[in-house]
């Protein structure tokens, strides 16, 4: 009896569970950002400024402050758009269009991870790493910066894995009945984008 009942969970409940998970994840990131500000405002030594630390742009010879981070924000917003389009096409039961947009979403997500790893490699060459910083600055800065961006990067990686999984599922299925799954994957993906918008302001700009 119970099994029959469980199979009939309607899509409102799926969405509700996803939202509860997202709210708990918002609390985690809020904790991180509060720790960032607590460390920053009680710092006894010099706290590095975002304009000075993040001047690296790959493929271009000269340095522009914060340009690469802006490009990364643009990339994530673009991937959010293609995820929305994929869900939209699936709802109109056009399977091939939905798969093409989902493929673009996965590709742009991998591009974001690639950009972030380039930035991490550059920073570690300049002397920023867990417990390391150029002399005279506060070492807590690099600790909390790598913790927050690493945590966000893991979220993007999990999102890419979910997207690849659902890509295979949609490709193999005969009848189109995985709209709830795709919708929830989309919610998670937009949430990652939302978190990046906040990180861009609170860690890099302010």
């Amino acid at each position: 009896m119970n099994d029959i009942h469980l199979n009939k969970i309607n899509h409102q409940n799926w969405k509700l569970m996803m939202w509860l998970f997202l709210i708990s994840d918002i609390f985690t990131f809020c904790g991180f950002i509060n720790v960032f500000f607590a460390l920053r405002l009680n710092s006894k030594t010099i706290w590095p400024n975002g304009d000075i630390v993040f001047t690296y742009v790959p493929l271009i010879g000269y340095n522009i402050p914060l340009a690469f981070v802006t490009i990364m924000t643009f990339i994530l917003i673009m991937s959010s758009i293609s995820m929305y389009a994929s869900t939209y096409e699936y709802k109109k039961s056009k399977k091939i269009n939905s798969l093409i947009w989902l493929f673009f979403t996965i590709l742009i997500g991998i591009m974001f991870i690639f950009c972030q790893s380039l930035e991490w490699i550059h920073l570690s060459n300049k002397g920023y790493w867990f417990g390391k910083i150029p002399i005279g600055h506060n070492v807590n800065y690099s600790n909390i910066f790598f913790a927050i961006t690493g945590f966000h990067g893991i979220h993007v990686l999990i999102g890419i894995m979910i997207n690849i999984f659902i890509f295979i599922k949609i490709y193999l299925e005969k009848r189109m009945h995985s709209y709830n799954f795709l919708n929830n994957a989309g919610l998670y993906w937009h949430f990652v984008d939302l978190i990046w918008v906040f990180i861009f302001t609170f860690i890099y700009l302010i």
Partner: peptide, 21 residues
């Protein structure tokens, strides 16, 4: 409509980038 929102979000990000320096 979704394309318009995309343009708006990009525009806001560029404003933030511009006033940062």
């Amino acid at each position: 409509k979704i394309f318009n929102i995309f343009i708006l979000l990009t525009f806001f990000t560029l404003i933030e980038f511009y006033i940062s320096f």
